[in-house]
């Protein structure tokens, strides 16, 4: 990684950071959506004991829809406001992808931690294997952010961009959800590490690496379309 690459990626990240900190619209919307989703799902459980598998599934549904609705903004907003062309003229595609993906990763982690704390609180669930829970969450956020960033870019120039971005991101992330649920249910006390927990963790990390490795190249090919 040479310094030019670092500078360019940080320039994009800093731009995203400044815009978000000054308007707070994206973060606030993401937080609100996440909290409402968690509340709605928890309310549906009606204070009954929920098995760990169901808790993990519900949590991942909340994370998935929260990510699909909020993280795709980073590209959609550029096209909507007409600033995408400025980036196309001055920035290299990999720098744009990584800068935005890093910001999305940050946003996803912050939102996920909040959602998780609320959800575990509402459902009175204990984490039995914290490291596995943490790996599932962090690796899941990396994959979510990478895939959703790419889907935002694919949908950004369509007329129905907001709906399309979410519609194409959710199916692509279903395998990730399957892995995430497998890992998280073991961390919440159901099943065993050797029975699939550690495999799910490895799968999540591999999914994240693959998504973030291929995403920039796919993005670079369509950035100027």
């Amino acid at each position: 990684m040479n310094s030019s690459w670092r500078v360019e990626i940080l320039a994009i990240f800093r731009k995203e950071w400044r815009i978000e900190m000054r308007s707070l619209s994206g973060l606030v919307t993401a937080f609100l959506f996440s909290v409402v989703t968690v509340y709605a799902i928890s309310f549906a459980a009606l204070n009954t004991h929920i098995p760990p598998t169901v808790v993990s599934g519900m949590l991942w549904v909340a994370l998935l829809f929260s990510a699909a609705s909020s993280l795709t903004r980073t590209f959609l907003i550029e096209e909507e406001l007409g600033t995408a062309d400025l980036l196309r003229l001055v920035a290299r595609p990999h720098a744009v992808f990584w800068g935005k993906a890093l910001f999305n990763i940050f946003q996803c982690i912050v939102t996920s931690v909040l959602v998780t704390i609320l959800f575990l609180g509402f459902t009175s669930t204990q984490v039995i294997i914290p490291w596995l829970f943490g790996v599932s969450l962090i690796a899941g956020c990396l994959s979510l952010a990478g895939a959703v960033t790419l889907c935002g870019a694919i949908a950004s120039q369509a007329s129905n961009r907001s709906m399309l971005a979410a519609a194409i991101a959710v199916p692509l992330l279903l395998p990730l959800v399957a892995l995430g649920v497998s890992g998280m249910r073991v961390s919440l006390g159901e099943g065993s590490l050797s029975g699939g927990g550690s495999g799910a963790a490895i799968g999540l990390i591999g999914y994240a690496v693959a998504t973030l490795a291929t995403g920039p190249y796919i993005f670079a090919a369509v950035w100027k379309s």
């Binding site: 790419l150 870019a153 694919i154 120039q157 692509l172 796919i218 993005f219 090919a221 369509v222 379309s225």
Partner: peptide, 14 residues
């Protein structure tokens, strides 16, 4: 063509 191809490639791994 471009965006369809991008999605097709992104869909291979999952």
């Amino acid at each position: 063509a471009a965006f369809g191809a991008a999605y097709a490639l992104a869909a291979v791994l999952p």
